[in-house]
Nucleic acid binder design. Sequence first.
DNA 1: ATTTGTGAACTAGTTCACAGCA
DNA 2: TGCTGTGAACTAGTTCACAAAT
Lengths: 257, 257
Amino acid sequence: MATGRTHRPATRSRGIPEATVARLPLYLRALTALSERSVPTVSSEELAAAAGVNSAKLRKDFSYLGSYGTRGVGYDVEYLVYQISRELGLTQDWPVVIVGIGNLGAALANYGGFASRGFRVAALIDADPAMAGKPVAGMPVQHTDELEKIISDNGVSIGVIATPAGAAQQVCDRLVAAGVTSILNFAPTVLTVPDGVDVRKVDLSIELQILAFHEQRKAGEESSADSADDAEGTAPPAAAKPHRKGPDGDVPAVMPA
Amino acid sequence: MATGRTHRPATRSRGIPEATVARLPLYLRALTALSERSVPTVSSEELAAAAGVNSAKLRKDFSYLGSYGTRGVGYDVEYLVYQISRELGLTQDWPVVIVGIGNLGAALANYGGFASRGFRVAALIDADPAMAGKPVAGMPVQHTDELEKIISDNGVSIGVIATPAGAAQQVCDRLVAAGVTSILNFAPTVLTVPDGVDVRKVDLSIELQILAFHEQRKAGEESSADSADDAEGTAPPAAAKPHRKGPDGDVPAVMPA
DNA sequence: ATTTGTGAACTAGTTCACAGCA
DNA sequence: TGCTGTGAACTAGTTCACAAAT
């Protein structure tokens, strides 16, 4: 570490905030639905409701793209669909490979929404020789040996990793070496990649744990006093710490107010 | 809307920032791995590297939980595993139901990491009568009619929705009515829930679109000048806008510097 | 009369840098 | 000496509230 910028400001792109980028697909989905119902225009209020955000945020987000609305009227649905699609790079086709065709990989391969917007499954790859040639989602699974060839032949720049955790880093390294620069990781492990490669992770277990945290808080609010160390059921690891200081000093687990 | 606080400060819990909560599972995973290798202590630097964050952030995160480290030494692995588990509510068991046993639902049901940490699949539920009774991941699929009974009999408070988008809101409503207060949504749709219910979403298509955005930017940086409107291949919707103002006024798509 | 687009104010999250403790 | 814990400085993101446009 310690090499100047450890973190890289996450492709702040042409000044469009990352948080905004993350919401554009949401807007696009809502707009597409409106478009299918032939709705010609929407107000920021309506669209925001459909996308599950508030209207000020939506307007601010759109303001980063340009002035695509009409005051007193709203936004032209078709026009906005096109603008956002273009901004997201969905007016071109992105071939992707899915590596690891287990339960999850197969589910992803079958997922329709994949192809719907600019993405095309170029290949399904698995390390198990027994899988090779077997059709999944109407496509023959190919063996990992072919990985590099598949990537370069198809100009793949986006890879989806759905392997077991143990294989993920290795697969990732091969994908990157072969030219992939964006990775969507479903394996429950932290991937290390060189600068310039983007990784996004999807992790069921993490999401559940975050929910459990909040769930626990809800439960605690109801009963409040009692059961504050009910959770100790699993027994704290014996010995261990000499002293510990709780979040607010040394007050017992029961909160003051 | 317009009722005082529109947004609710997202369960800011006992003051632990949401961003920190989202990282605790990451730390926990790294710590569990160390624990299995019988490593007794870690420094913030080492643990941060394993979790893929920087050490200042990790220390700050831990500081919200309390002072669990020892200066000059580091953190006791076992002790920290316990503290974080407790904080996340993983010292108790959370029964969850999975609704929608298609490709994805089956993949989730089979996902091992599920049970590993505090979560237990209490039931698999599907609307298709043909699925009823069929074993998936060693468990018989139950029909949607049983949903309410299953929830209350098992005291389920966390539900996973893996249905098609069209069914998601309806399933969500039933889950909530039956007592579920945390939902993990895999369906590509925005769920509306009453106050006090948490929803987290996992959306393949959104993740890919975010990657595509950055990918496009990378490509643009290389060639720079040329192909600025190469993306227009899909043709902009005819008619539409009278005037439009690009992000920086009216400059053509070629960037100045 | 409406509804956008956006500075300004605010809130959350990150990083710095170093005092304090083992 | 080494490493945690944390105020202080900074950066990113959200919300407010209203001027500008149609």
